[in-house]
Design a protein around this nucleic acid. Structure first.
Lengths: 201, 201
DNA sequence: GTCTATACACTGATAGAC
DNA sequence: GTCTATCAGTGTATAGAC
């Protein structure tokens, strides 16, 4: 029997981590941080209990990695869209059109749930709250100037751009929550409704 | 020593239940259902561990009583305001003006957090999810006709009234979430912003 | 790299004294 | 009515075999 190549090992590891991450995503979204168990994550991943600890030092670290991915990928997506050409209002509209399906359907909707779980009950995870506050600040830093630009163009309603950004993001997170309980209704909410928070009357 | 009167006993019980409820409200809001412990609730109430179980059969029951109070009191408040005289739009505005401060400040803001916790991670509490879905249906049943009336009067935007109600309530719940992380910003959100979701353009 | 078995701490709930 | 002590169950994390 020839020894496994380093490349093959790397692939096995990547696959295991992938399985654990996917399972953890669904378990945390469903049960919350405290309610989720490592046993359940291992089962849903189809791996043994011990192996999860081979790849992640602790339950908190599994959760942190999910939160980080959720934060970084949405931030990257936002910045990409907001930096494209077009008027400020058009760029905000384009972002909404991406955001709404993401928050309400598909795999990425789970990440919105994870963020919700993290924000509501991750006080027990050391440093997580600070990290979230730090990274979500980026949303405001990126959004506020665009909103201000839209105000100057006469498209967006008057008011503190950061407050408007807060309203916008709150609305979005709230929608992700309602998908669980009123799925059909929540999925009928349109990007236009989200934009109505910012639109000049 | 004269025996305690029945009246005095009743008062002691009411006081203990009050203390437990207040403590549980803050602990559940802070840690979530699974993360909260009966020990912590007893400590925060300033009572012994055993006494909590003397008044509540289980942790789930403590939580359920909070969720129930949150649901029933907001439903009662909503129905009272929506049944007052005035145009449909005026009544919706009046409700928003009550809702925003409630969701964002004071003791009742905690109840919004409890509802959030219940909706995100109360799968483990038997029957709770069904109960929530049942009772929140009342919101839609009460809101939809008023929104439809406002549409006919030309004040509210077109679209399925239930979907609009979903957007409205999602926004509100999302705001309650952001109070924890961006308190000053969230508190600057106005009833007018909430109403913009429904307003005809 | 993957697994099973186990140590150790914590939590929900109960029993029984005062 | 209020308390302390305790039981049974569960959960995180680790050890060590293959």
């Amino acid at each position: 029997m020839s020894p496994r190549g380093e490349l093959q090992n790397e692939r096995m590891r990547a696959e295991a981590v992938e399985k654990i991450t996917a399972a953890a995503l669904s378990v945390f979204a469903e049960y919350g941080y405290a309610g989720a168990t490592m046993k359940r994550i291992a089962e849903r991943a189809g791996l043994s209990y011990g192996l999860v600890y081979h790849y992640f030092p602790s339950k908190a670290d599994v959760f942190r990695s999910l939160v980080d991915f959720a934060l970084e990928s949405t931030i990257a997506g936002m910045q990409m869209i907001l930096n494209q050409p077009g008027t400020a209002w058009e760029r905000l509209e384009r972002w909404s059109e991406v955001l709404i399906p993401n928050a309400l359907a598909g795999a990425s909707s789970r990440y919105f749930l994870i963020m919700l779980q993290a924000m509501t009950q991750a006080r027990t995870v050391p440093g997580l709250l600070e990290h979230i506050n730090e990274r979500t600040a980026v949303y405001f830093q990126a959004l506020a100037p665009v909103i201000r630009e839209a105000q100057q163009a006469g498209d967006a309603v008057d008011g503190d751009p950061e407050v408007l950004a807060t309203a916008f993001l709150s609305f979005l997170q709230g929608l992700a929550l309602f998908v669980f309980h009123r799925e059909e209704l929540a999925k009928s909410v349109t990007p236009e409704m989200l934009m109505s928070v910012l639109r000049k009357r």
